[in-house]
């Protein structure tokens, strides 16, 4: 059968989901709430327990999930994880029928996204890289910013699904282009977190009230979403993860390696990367990236 046969009614789609973490679980719930027929696979079945208890089918392998889905969405940690899910033993590629689409919403290397898109294309399977920005809060509120790399027709087919997850969907370009935009996003965001950390380190060194500095700056030209959210965490010395710093650290390795390959100098990002290395060395990888403040406190 083709991937479009046996479609559930009313524009609803048969959707598979892998990666039921802090981001993935609320995203999967939004898809279900929008009326799509959801099924899941999980490396650790307990991470799917809540959804399974509510009646969501749990497949035994990624291949089985792919075989019953028009679209499979993945949101996992690293390039190697996505590669293994797609083309590893009992991977998605073994189950997809021609016309199916893999939408990867993880943050991975652009080169990996391009290579996977090519391998799928040879089998008549579509690819969309659709990394997100907005964190756990954005995932819960379905307000994620989604940056897509895909051929036009592929993106159009999955746009209703993405629309259930985010409010801003931008088509950047062909496969891999979404990951390029995400790399730019990470570079600006984490560099801004570092700038906030340095500002509050300076305020602390002077002994002035950091909360007052934060209130004052929020209204001015240094105001930003990072200052608002991460600045508040730094002032409160709340280092519990929102997004774990080790994930930003991983993202920086990807983007700095690509910059070296392309011959693009990124002097500020290179320094931020070193601060993240120091953060990891201090053992704060599972804490929030607001811990960049602690790196400066020695």
């Amino acid at each position: 059968m083709s991937a479009t046969e046996g479609r559930v009614e009313g524009g609803a789609m048969r959707v598979g989901f892998i990666g039921l973490g802090v981001m993935g679980e609320p995203m999967a719930r939004h898809l279900r709430a929008a009326g799509h027929a959801l099924a899941v696979w999980a490396r650790r079945p307990q991470s799917a327990a809540a959804l399974v208890a509510e009646g969501v089918p749990l497949c035994a392998t990624p291949a089985e999930l792919a075989a019953r889905s028009e679209v499979v969405i993945t949101i996992v940690t690293a390039s190697a994880d996505v590669e293994a899910l797609a083309f590893g033993a009992q991977g998605l590629a073994e189950g997809f029928v021609p016309g199916a689409i893999h939408v990867d919403m993880s943050t991975i290397a652009p080169a990996t996204a391009r290579a996977l898109a090519e391998r799928y294309a040879a089998r008549g399977v579509g690819w969309v890289d659709a990394p997100v920005s907005g964190g756990g809060q954005g995932a819960r509120d379905a307000t994620l910013a989604i940056m897509a790399g895909a051929e036009d027709d592929m993106l159009e087919r999955v746009r209703p699904l993405l629309g259930a997850l985010g409010k801003r969907i931008v088509h950047i370009g062909p496969p891999g282009a979404g990951q390029v935009a995400k790399a730019c996003n990470q570079m600006i965001m984490v560099s801004a977190i570092q700038a906030c950390a340095e500002a509050f380190r300076l305020a602390g060194a002077h002994g002035v009230d950091k909360a007052a500095v934060l209130r004052a700056l929020a209204g001015g030209s240094a105001g930003s979403r990072v200052l608002e959210v991460m600045g508040a965490k730094m002032v409160a010395r709340d280092f519990a993860a929102g997004v774990e710093a080790r994930l930003h650290h991983k993202d920086f390795a990807i983007l700095m390696e690509e910059a070296a390959r392309l011959g693009a100098p990124l002097p500020v990002a290179a320094q931020v990367w070193q601060q993240l290395d120091a953060l990891m060395g201090a053992g704060w990888g599972r804490d929030d990236t607001a811990s960049l403040l602690r790196v400066l406190e020695g």
Binding site: A260, L262, G263, P265, A270, Q271, D277, A278, A282, G285
Partner: peptide, 23 residues
């Protein structure tokens, strides 16, 4: 350095200059 969690700020700056040369 990334794998070990070791900061090399001066080497990092230099590496960017080499990137610029390649570019």
């Amino acid at each position: 350095a990334h794998r070990l969690g070791v900061a090399l700020p001066a080497a990092a700056a230099t590496a960017q200059l080499f990137n610029g040369m390649i570019g």
